[in-house]
Each structure stands twice: as structure tokens, then as C-alpha cells.
């Protein structure tokens, strides 16, 4: 019996000349809604792609439901909802789902179940291109739910939705975990953190916090998740790093070498702009980054265990 839905050790991913994930460690327990929160460009999508096995991984190990990520048996046990609604515009909702069900090997009865679960009964014979953004999103979610996978990986499923639709969607997520599945949900809207059972805070390609919503608020003394996240980042940058980091790590990044100069190859433009300053240990020296133990700032800074 495997207790964790996802385990990653030293996961390293490069996209082009950019190192997006650099030795990331991760544990996702079973049967919970786990939120993967972080600003855009922090590596959430890349991590999710690695989990479902469509990302070329440069180093490290990643195990999903006890098997190597992306291995053939997992393709029936893991549902993946990409960031854009990946459905066929020129098919109706039902035709989309019928095709995905046949590919997934799910019984035909599953189509009605997921349509009902995602509240699409009224739209089931409508062409996908005529749906609203929220409806199209739900079709994409319904497709990921076909065959009742043990793990659902949802990449920003609530992005661009109004508060009512977001609440509806979170109610659907809760029902899915009630059936025993595990959900990994990414979001850059920090408010959604409180709806998760566990939280993984991501920044600049690192997990900088592994906690629960209440622990996050308690340990940081913040009143909102957004605030708490900022404090975690602050804490992670101020924390004197034990394991052989240069003394500079206590300094403010800004009066040190300019962040761009210190890691010319690091992360996406987005995270290079902010992530360096906030979450990277100072290290003007490149090698210091290469062997720094990841998850380190976060796990403790987040105040969890």
C-alpha cells in the first residue's frame, strides 16, 4: 500500500536553456485536495506536466500512486486538466466526452455521470465553441473525471472565473475527494488556499511551503492567505541558511549583486524578475544554487511540521 499519491525527489526540469525546476522535492498525500499555489511563472504547470508524464525530466525521481510518473498503467489512473480548456471546439459537449471516454476506456455510462457532476446537463448537446469560458472549463474537467481516476491533476481550473462559478467548481472538487480520489489543484489566486486540505507554496521553481491553510495563517499571524504567502516568502529569504550557504544570505538581495546578474540562467522571465529577489538564497556564486537542498526554506518557513 502506497500512502502518498505523489512523491518527487530532486526533480529537475529544463525548458530550453531555462532551469524551471531545480532539484524539487514534493510529497502529496492521498485522498485530499492539495493546492499548488504560486505566482504565474513559478513552475506550477511544469511540475504538473512532470506528474502526468508529458514533460521531459532532466533529473530526479517522481513516483505517482507508487509507479513511475507517465508509465503506461498510470494513464488510466491519472486525470489531467490542462490550463486551457483542451476540448474540441467543433464537437458538442457529449461528443467530446464520448471520444475521451472511448480513449480512456471508460464505460459509456460515465459520460452522463461526469456531465451531471459538472452541471452541464443543459449544455450537453451544445457545440463547445458556443460555450462560455466557465462552461468550457467544466467540460475539460468532466473529461479529466472520466474513468474515475485516483489522481486528478488540475492546472488552474478556476482561472478567469467569477466567484460564483469558482465556488461551484470547488464544491465539485470536494465531491471528487469524497469519493476517495486525490486532487492536485494549481492556482495563482491565494484566496483559494483556504479551500484546500493541504497547501504547497511555490515560488521560482521551488516548493517554499508545505502546510495546511490553518497552520499557514497561524504560523505567519496573517489574516489572509495572500498576506501569509508574502510572509512565507519574506521568511524564506531572511532565514539564515544552514547548509553551507554564503554568509550573504542574510543580506537584503537588493544591495547585493543585481539579481539578474547572479543567476543568468534561472527560471522564466517572470520569476527572474521577482523570484530571485524574494526566494533565492543570495549566492552570487552559481554553484551554491546547484547543490542547495530544496524545500528547505519552505517546509520550515511555512511553519508546518
Amino acid at each position: 500500500m502506497v500512502n502518498n499519491a505523489i512523491e518527487a525527489r530532486g526533480l529537475t526540469v529544463r525548458r530550453g536553456r531555462t532551469t524551471v525546476l531545480d532539484g524539487l522535492d514534493l510529497t502529496v498525500p492521498r485522498g485530499a485536495i492539495v493546492g499548488l499555489l504560486g505566482p504565474s511563472g513559478s513552475g506550477k504547470t511544469t511540475l504538473m506536466r512532470a506528474i502526468v508524464g508529458v514533460q521531459i525530466v532532466r533529473g530526479g525521481e517522481i513516483t505517482v500512486l507508487g509507479e513511475r510518473a507517465g508509465s503506461a498503467p498510470l494513464r488510466q489512473r491519472v486525470g489531467y486538466m490542462t490550463q486551457q480548456a483542451s476540448i474540441y471546439d467543433d464537437l458538442t459537449v457529449r461528443q467530446n466526452l464520448r471520444y475521451f471516454a472511448r480513449v480512456q476506456g471508460a464505460p459509456a455510462s460515465d459520460i452522463d455521470r461526469v456531465i451531471e457532476r459538472t452541471d452541464l446537463t443543459g449544455q450537453s448537446d451544445q457545440l463547445a465553441r458556443t460555450l462560455s469560458g466557465g462552461q468550457a472549463n467544466r467540460v475539460s474537467l468532466a473529461a479529466a473525471m472520466l474513468g474515475s481516476p485516483d489522481l486528478l491533476v488540475l492546472d488552474e481550473p478556476t482561472v478567469g472565473l467569477d466567484p460564483v462559478l469558482r465556488a461551484d467548481l470547488w464544491a465539485i472538487f470536494r465531491r471528487i475527494t469524497d469519493d476517495g480520489a486525490t486532487l492536485l489543484v494549481s492556482s495563482h489566486v491565494m484566496d483559494e488556499a483556504t479551500r484546500c486540505d493541504r497547501l504547497l507554496l511555490m515560488r521560482g521553481g521551488d516548493i517554499i511551503g508545505d502546510t495546511t491553510p490553518s497552520e499557514l495563517l497561524e504560523s505567519t499571524g496573517a489574516t489572509s492567505a495572500e498576506d501569509a504567502f508574502l510572509r512565507v516568502i519574506e521568511a524564506s529569504e531572511k532565514m539564515p541558511d544552514a547548509a553551507g550557504q554564503p554568509a550573504a544570505s542574510g543580506n537584503s538581495r537588493d544591495d547585493n549583486a543585481p539579481p539578474h546578474a547572479s543567476h543568468p540562467d534561472a527560471q522564466s522571465p517572470d520569476s527572474r524578475r521577482t523570484g530571485q529577489r524574494l526566494s533565492e538564497p543570495a549566492g552570487p556564486a552559481e554553484p551554491a544554487k546547484a547543490d542547495k537542498p530544496h524545500g528547505r526554506h519552505g517546509r520550515h518557513a511555512g511553519g508546518a511540521q
Partner: peptide, 8 residues
């Protein structure tokens, strides 16, 4: 991408 994460 979705299809390739499925058993197709």
C-alpha cells in the same frame, strides 16, 4: 497533450 496523457 491531454490525449498523450491518456492511454492513446
Amino acid at each position: 497533450e491531454r490525449l498523450l496523457s491518456m492511454p492513446l
